[in-house]
């Protein structure tokens, strides 16, 4: 038996909106520690890892570990029926081939339940080793989204380079080139507006902008984004989910020319 009650249901709505176009089907894993997901896109270039810790739920019951295969497009269709202020409860019985999403309006005057069919998904769980990243950039998530969107109008790939000077996002296309440099800036009014660069070694990697743009759909989950880079490793683009966990996108680099 599984029953997870999330008062801030909008978080789950936002999570789905941010991953449904990247991943078609995924297994949600439920254990006593939390509700999680790991899935790759169909071309195995990007991987998403989601964690919503059990402590973040108002009520969390998971009698035994469960893996529930869901079509994210269908799950998103159902979650879109929840109001932004609604409380969302996820329920499933052991061995059941369905999951139920229950939505309660804040005033309890509207209660809906949606039952969705589960599916068998043969997904391979990858081991993600702990890594010391050469450069870690934290910046406003909206700024990162703006840069990815702007550059994708000019080129298909972005070179992200971190040096003592700052982080540089560069692209090149038929119409020309673009370079955007963000310097470390910690003298801001609000901490979430800061750009912080922790660099142990300079690093420069090339990535497909199409994927970066897809990751920025998670911008609504967090005011800041953390980009962790090391040569010879996928970049990690992480959005923290307030007091609950995170959504991390891993993207394999392009091979340098």
């Amino acid at each position: 038996m599984l029953e997870l009650r999330l008062v801030q249901g909008s978080l789950l709505k936002k999570v789905l909106e941010s991953i449904k176009d990247l991943v078609n089907d995924a297994n949600f894993d439920c254990s006593s520690s939390g509700f999680s997901l790991q899935a790759m896109d169909s071309s195995h270039v990007a991987l998403v890892a989601l964690l919503l810790r059990s402590e973040g739920f108002e009520h969390y019951r998971c009698d035994r570990n469960m893996s529930m295969g869901m079509n994210l497009g269908n799950m998103s269709k159902m979650l879109r029926c929840a109001g932004n202020d609604d409380i969302i409860t996820i329920k499933a019985d052991d061995g059941s081939d369905t999951v139920t999403f229950m939505f309660e309006s804040p005033t309890q005057d509207k209660i809906s339940d949606f039952e969705m069919k589960l599916m068998d998904i043969d997904s391979e769980h990858l081991g993600i080793p702990e890594a010391e990243y050469q450069s870690i950039v934290t910046m406003p998530s909206a700024e990162f989204a703006r840069i990815c969107k702007d550059l994708s109008g000019i080129g298909d790939t972005v070179v992200i380079s971190v040096t003592k000077e700052g982080v540089k996002f560069s692209t090149r296309g038929d119409i020309g080139t673009a370079n955007i440099v963000c310097r470390q800036n910690t003298t801001v009014d609000k901490p979430e507006e800061a750009t912080v660069i922790n660099m142990s070694e300079p690093v420069s990697l090339t990535f497909a902008l199409r994927y970066m743009n897809s990751f920025t759909k998670a911008t609504t989950l967090s005011n800041t984004v953390t980009i962790s880079l090391s040569s010879e490793l996928p970049v990690v683009v992480e959005y923290k989910i307030a007091e609950m966990g995170y959504i991390r996108f891993y993207l394999a680099p392009k091979i340098e020319e």
Binding site: H44, A46, L126, G127, P234, L251, A252, K254
Partner: peptide, 14 residues
Amino acid sequence: VNPQRQITSFFSKA
């Protein structure tokens, strides 16, 4: 065009 690497060439099956 830079060739694209895959996630599976960095992370292996758990």
